[in-house]
């Protein structure tokens, strides 16, 4: 029996969809059977990012309203046979689905797949409630910005209230050189507020934009892209492996790295 993981953030534009797509591919690379659910009904994106837009016949709403079987709506990925997408409907809104229906759908997919990743819409309304309804655990995506961290905090509170006990943090789009200059929140600043376990830090990487526009994921070229490597590491951590965190401060002087290592440096 598989596991349902919701990828959520509160704030929009912090990289939920990119994270969902890359972790999906990362887990598929590890030979796991994975399905991605786009829960952002009315504003679907995951199909575009995956490059599967032109293959959609049925969608999530068709499934819950019984117009097709789940299997008919699942789209197999172009490159990975064990990776599937259940796309969102574009012509409906979030109220087209209820939390109970989502829960039932997740339960059904769990029987068949090792991982069910749910790409949550921004916000805390119906769409969010639907997306978390069937989740066993959550990944909270934030960027090093006060507004994103504030929203992540709100989301964690709501997840706690919904009795989702297991959640971990993904810090996206970190720019080490800005942190060094003191112009960006550091990992420690974020963790001090949110006080939850970190599962990975994705450095800002323009390769993300290039590959997303092509419907590809950076995680497939992990050796060329620091972000791809970071996503691969998170996928492995999801599988329970212990992977050391990337050293994002490689260009720092030996002394400041040493200070950081022994906990003195900022």
């Amino acid at each position: 029996m598989g596991e349902v993981i919701v990828i959520t953030s509160g704030k929009g534009g912090v990289g939920k969809t990119t994270t969902t797509a890359n972790l999906g591919v990362g887990l598929a690379l590890a030979q796991k059977k994975v399905v991605l659910i786009d829960a952002d009904i009315g504003l679907r994106n995951l199909d575009v990012v995956m490059g599967l837009e032109n293959r959609i016949v049925y969608d999530l709403v068709d499934v819950v309203e019984g117009r097709c079987r789940v299997k008919q709506a699942l789209i197999r990925d172009k490159r990975y046979d064990n990776l599937f997408l259940l796309p969102a409907a574009q012509t409906r809104d979030k109220n087209a689905v209820s939390p109970e229906q989502m829960k039932k759908l997740c339960e059904e997919l769990k029987q068949e797949f090792d991982f069910v990743l749910v790409d949550c819409p921004a916000g805390i309304e119906q769409g969010f409630r639907n997306a978390i309804a069937g989740a066993d655990r959550a990944l909270i995506v934030t960027t090093p910005e006060v507004s994103a961290v504030r929203d992540a905090d709100r989301i964690i509170g709501l997840l706690e209230a919904a009795e989702i006990k297991s959640f971990r943090l993904v810090i996206n789009r970190l720019r080490p050189e800005m942190v060094k200059r003191g112009d960006m929140l550091d990992i420690d600043d974020i963790l001090e507020i949110l006080a939850i376990e970190l599962i990975g830090v994705i450095p800002d990487d323009e390769k993300i934009i290039i590959s997303t526009n092509r419907g590809e994921q950076v995680v497939t070229n992990a050796n060329d892209s620091p972000a791809g490597k970071a996503y691969l590491n998170i996928a492995q951590r999801l599988l329970g492996e212990t992977v050391p965190f990337l050293d994002l401060y490689q260009n720092q002087s030996f002394f400041s790295r040493l200070k950081r290592l022994i906990g003195l440096g900022g």
């Binding site: 504030r150 905090d153 709100r154 964690i156 509170g157 706690e160 006080a195």
Partner: peptide
């Protein structure tokens, strides 16, 4: 007195 043994997060 009310004792709250956890962190209060945004919106609470």
């Amino acid at each position: 007195a009310l004792v709250i043994k956890r962190t209060l997060r945004s919106g609470q």
